[in-house]
Structures are given as structure tokens and as C-alpha cells.
């Protein structure tokens, strides 16, 4: 009888009050864990713009006065525009490049319109692109800056790459008098 009462008492202790001795808790030791998940995405970004914006570049030839002499270049060069860019890439991306092409109008016959980008300058950070040298602008895209990695050039004038436009008479036989020709040059940053 005494045994039965004791047994019942023990069973009651054991099964009805498990919290008293910590049964059912994590391992029964003095440590317990829980978790909070943290998740976010850094997207791939490729942005370029010109600084200052909405600036028109004006290049011209001088009016010929003396027959037989070479045509003089008037405003033959402009380097007032800078190109800024920001580029984020995944670990698997090879990099980016910037192409330029004439997307409105055509370069007048007998004249070449050249474009070059300077080495990077500014207070940005990261893997900046490398200028590819001078290109003769046309309606086909051509690379002016290559091997852009993850970087930002800084925003504004005197940051990024200075762009230089020049014109040159390359074929007098095709040279024609014309009123001003408007051209639009479009820059595109794209994955390699």
C-alpha cells in the first residue's frame, strides 16, 4: 500500500509537473537558442550620365578665304563633358563597357568626328574602366571605355572620364558646304 502511494506520488511528480525539473526543454542544459533571419538583395546596377547635363557641343570649320589653302578648323575640339557611372556586378559577371554611337543625324561627308575618353579622375572607388583610345564616331556602337567592374566614379563635373570631341577634314573631295548638322551621340553601358 505504502509502495503504491509512493509510486503514484512519483509518477504524478514526473508526468504532471515536468516544468519543475525542466523536462521538455532544450537539452535540459542552461542554454537555449532561437533565430532571426536576415535577408536582402543587392541588385545589379548600371548607370551613366553626362556632366554637365544637357550641354550642346559645337564644332565648326572656318570659312575658307584663300583658295588652295587647307580648311581651318574653327571650334574643332570640345572637352567640356564628363561621363559618370556606377556599376554593381555579381560575382559571375565579367564586367561592363561603354559604347558610343551617332543615333541622330549623320556626320557630314568629308569630315570625321572623333571621340576619346580620358583616364579616370575623381573621388570614386572601385574598379574603373579603361579608355580604349580615340574612335571615329558613326552610326555603329563603338567601345570608348572597357573593363568596368564594381565602382562609382563620383557625381558631377571633373569626375569620371573627360570626353573629348574633335573634328577633322579627312576627304576634301567630299566636303560640302552645309548649314549646321545636328548630331546626337548616345552612350550605352552594357555587360561584356
Amino acid at each position: 500500500m505504502v509502495k503504491k502511494i509512493k509510486g503514484t506520488f512519483l509518477l504524478t511528480l514526473f508526468f504532471l509537473f515536468p516544468p519543475i525539473y525542466g523536462w521538455g526543454q532544450n537539452g535540459g542544459g542552461w542554454d537555449e537558442e532561437d533565430y532571426i533571419d536576415v535577408a536582402f538583395s543587392i541588385p545589379e546596377i548600371a548607370l551613366i550620365d553626362m556632366e554637365p547635363s544637357n550641354v550642346h557641343v559645337k564644332l565648326s570649320l572656318k570659312e575658307q578665304v584663300n583658295p588652295g589653302e587647307a580648311v581651318e578648323i574653327g571650334d574643332g575640339e570640345d572637352n567640356s563633358i564628363w561621363i559618370n557611372y556606377t556599376s554593381t556586378l555579381s560575382s559571375y559577371s565579367l564586367g561592363r563597357s561603354i559604347n558610343a554611337q551617332v543615333t541622330y543625324g549623320t556626320v557630314p561627308p568629308g569630315i570625321s568626328l572623333y571621340l576619346s575618353a580620358s583616364e579616370y579622375k575623381g573621388n570614386g572607388k572601385g574598379s574603373m574602366g579603361s579608355p580604349t583610345g580615340t574612335i571615329s564616331l558613326s552610326n555603329s556602337p563603338q567601345t570608348i571605355i572597357s573593363n568596368i567592374g564594381r565602382c562609382y566614379t563620383g557625381n558631377g563635373k571633373n569626375k569620371g572620364h573627360r570626353l573629348t570631341y574633335t573634328i577633322e577634314v579627312t576627304d576634301y573631295s567630299k566636303l560640302e558646304y552645309s548649314e549646321a548638322s545636328d548630331l546626337q551621340v548616345t552612350y550605352t553601358i552594357s555587360d561584356i
Binding site: 542552461w30 542554454d31 533565430y35 532571426i36 533571419d37 543587392i42 556586378l89
Partner: peptide
Amino acid sequence: LNFRLQNVSVLIPADDYQTTLVFTIY
């Protein structure tokens, strides 16, 4: 609790980041 990220930059590879904060009581 509040949380923040430091050193966020375009120089960090684009990706879907995921970690777990583990809290332990002793």
C-alpha cells in the same frame, strides 16, 4: 531589437544575401 547594415556599397557583389542571427540564453 533594431538592426542596421553598415558598409553598404556598390563595391559589394550583387547577390541575394542571407544570414541568421542566433540568440542564446545562458
